[in-house]
């Protein structure tokens, strides 16, 4: 019975210790739309820059799925996150969050439809009765917006395609299409361009068959109860990033941004409507 009492006491101690949490660290995360190592590589110089500008420690918290980032931000486990349009809408439904900045490119974002080059597919229509891959189910550019635009064209994915699968991330979608596992797929235009520039797309295996209309996507969002002064400082630090400064240009390059611009929640009303229409939001 002593064992029982000791364990009980330990557990109580544990719970009481959990209640207090206040630290001078800015905890930052990002939706895992690419491989985790790629996310860390992209964030490292930006994190160092923010540490210098804000005068506080900045810690990157790696997270394995989209929804977990939403939960973490709305339950104050992290202070700031790089969200997609859809995850931002989910987060603002589940708690108070404030969008600070976005890349200039995010105000006119697109997705790219791709197909396996050997499958004899030249347009979306040719994908009828074939296998198709979205990215993560919670992705804006890899799922929500393409689904929305497909439906506008009268294509209901579940009946139009033979099989609808979720690869989990944009780079994974490309790998699937290249391997022939699925005949077609859709991904974020920015990741597509990056892979093309890096020579990671074999034109003999994957080809581009279409582009969606433009929409608002990614932003940097903080939890609503983060100190207002700190919010301003973060915004300023992002807006100050100057492409003419070589060191800062490297940061922008990694973020695939020409520059950062302020953003507001109203920019994402369109995404919210699309999510409702696509049946992903109730």
């Amino acid at each position: 019975m002593t064992a029982l009492k000791l364990t009980l006491a330990g557990a109580l101690l544990a719970v009481s210790a959990l209640v207090s949490a206040e630290e001078a660290v800015l905890k930052v995360s990002a939706i895992p739309d690419e491989a985790p190592t790629e996310l860390q590589r992209k964030f490292a110089p930006l994190g160092a820059y923010l540490e210098k500008e804000l005068g506080m420690k900045v810690q990157f918290v790696p997270v394995t799925d989209y929804a977990a980032v939403v939960t973490a931000l709305t339950s104050d486990k992290i202070d700031m996150a790089w969200l997609g349009g859809f995850t931002f809408v989910q987060a603002s439904q589940r708690g108070k969050v404030v969008p600070l900045v976005q890349r200039e490119e995010d105000s006119k974002f697109t997705s790219k439809y791709i197909a396996n080059a050997e499958a004899g597919i030249n347009s979306l229509k040719d994908l009828k009765g074939k296998n198709f891959a979205f990215g993560s189910a919670s992705s804006t550019s890899g799922h929500l917006m393409p689904r929305y635009f497909l439906q506008k064209q009268g294509i209901k994915p579940e009946s139009f395609f033979k099989n609808v699968a979720y690869s989990g991330a944009h780079d994974a979608t490309v790998a699937w299409v290249a391997s022939g596992k699925v005949e077609g797929g859709v991904l974020n235009a920015s990741v597509w361009d990056k892979l093309v520039e890096a020579g990671k797309i074999d034109p003999a295996k994957v080809k581009l068959i279409g582009t969606t209309p433009a929409y608002y996507d990614y932003n940097w969002t903080v939890r609503g109860n983060l100190d207002a002064k700190l919010q301003q400082k973060i915004t300023k630090a992002f807006l100050k990033l100057d492409p003419k400064n070589p060191e800062q240009q490297a940061i922008l390059e990694l973020q695939r941004a020409s520059k950062f611009i302020p953003t507001k929640a109203a920019n994402y009303k369109g995404i919210e409507a699309a999510a409702k229409e696509a049946g992903l939001l109730k």
Partner: peptide, 12 residues
């Protein structure tokens, strides 16, 4: 072993 991580994550 687990406690430090829990304390950091907090519990609500």
């Amino acid at each position: 072993w687990l406690l430090p991580a829990w304390r950091e994550a907090g519990f609500d």
